[in-house]
């Protein structure tokens, strides 16, 4: 799980162009949106594409995103349970 969390943090940094951030700067349990990392709705779309491209997870119901993208740990947990690649 820790390996996946680190991998995910690196992918988030690359996909969202968080140029000045390192994986350790992202709190594994902090909210990704709003007060935590401060991501927005366009970032959510980017994360949906990331999950499909890298892990084969198609998020049919966009409203599920709010729960899945709660934190890096929640996201990693969802990926581990649902990944097809």
């Amino acid at each position: 799980m820790d390996e996946l969390i680190l991998e995910l943090k690196n992918e988030i940094i690359e996909t969202l162009n968080l140029e000045d951030m390192q994986p350790e700067d992202i709190d594994t349990d902090a909210p990704l949106f709003g007060e935590g990392l401060g991501l927005d709705s366009i970032d959510a779309l980017e994360l949906i594409v990331l999950m499909e491209k890298n892990y084969g997870i198609k998020l049919r119901d966009a409203s599920k995103g709010k729960e899945i993208f709660k934190s890096v740990r929640v996201m990693a947990d969802y990926i581990e349970k649902n990944r097809t690649k």
Partner: peptide
């Protein structure tokens, strides 16, 4: 490259 799939919204 992605066959018109997985397009980046930004």
């Amino acid at each position: 490259n992605e066959g018109e799939q997985l397009l980046k919204p930004t």
